[in-house]
Simulated scan of single mutants.
Amino acid sequence: MPSLNHSRCRVGWLLVAGLWFAGPANAGELDPKAISIKLPDQIDWVANPGGSETAVLVGDPAKPGLYVVLTKWKAHHNSQPHSHPNDRFITVISGTWWVGTGGDYQPDQLKPVPAGSFVTHYGKEVHYDGAKDEDTVLQIVGIGPATSTPAK
């Protein structure tokens, strides 16, 4: 007679196999009132003059309120020293992001921030950033308006 644990194991595998064979083909449609999905080819990227591209995911960075954007720094492009009025919360999605602080632009002093890292840019503090040898994608979350003030 099989043990209780053996029977549970067999039942568990049957459930897994049933889910595997049922697969996505039999999955119901998602309720658009409950969830919204944008696949990578549905995200609209806009080129910026400084060598980056931006995709707004949530909100409007030009207006007051929460926003979420993706920023893609193209290889060999950096910003000049600047600040933002509010804190910004950044996750490095891919590539290596290079960052510096202070009003004296020193690209040879940039520090690497690898993919998977989380960074806070504090409001009104001067920094500069960009990409060296590879494109870098960031997710930036903040409270707008997301203006940028050049350092003097």
Rank of each mutant, 00 (worst) to 15 (best):
S94D: 09
V113K: 12
G12C: 09
G144E: 07
P2D: 05
T120P: 08
D133C: 09
E125D: 11
T136I: 07
G100D: 06
F118I: 14
W97H: 12
E53L: 07
P40T: 03
D31L: 10
T54I: 00
Y105M: 07
Q109K: 15
V58L: 10
Q139N: 04
P114N: 15
D44C: 00
S3G: 04
W13E: 10
A75G: 06
L19E: 04
G142L: 07
S83I: 01
Y67G: 09
H76G: 04
N78D: 01
D133Y: 07
G142M: 06
D129N: 12
G65Y: 05
P32R: 12
S36W: 00
K33Y: 05
P64G: 13
V113G: 14
D31W: 08
P64T: 14
P85F: 03
Y67H: 10
P32T: 08
P49Y: 10
G28A: 09
N48G: 15
L30N: 10
Q80D: 02
K152E: 07
N26Y: 05
P145I: 06
A151S: 07
W45C: 01
L66K: 09
V16N: 02
I140G: 01
D60E: 13
A25L: 01
T96E: 05
W73K: 10
S52R: 03
P2M: 01
F21D: 02
D133W: 13
K38P: 04
K132M: 09
H121N: 13
H82I: 05
A55P: 03
H84K: 06
A131S: 14
T101F: 06
G144T: 08
T136Q: 10
L39W: 06
T96M: 01
I90T: 14
K152P: 06
P145N: 07
I43H: 04
K33D: 12
D135N: 15
D129S: 09
L19V: 07
I37F: 02
Q42P: 02
S117I: 15
H84A: 09
Q106S: 14
D104W: 05
V126T: 12
P112I: 11
R10C: 01
R10H: 01
V113S: 14
G18V: 08
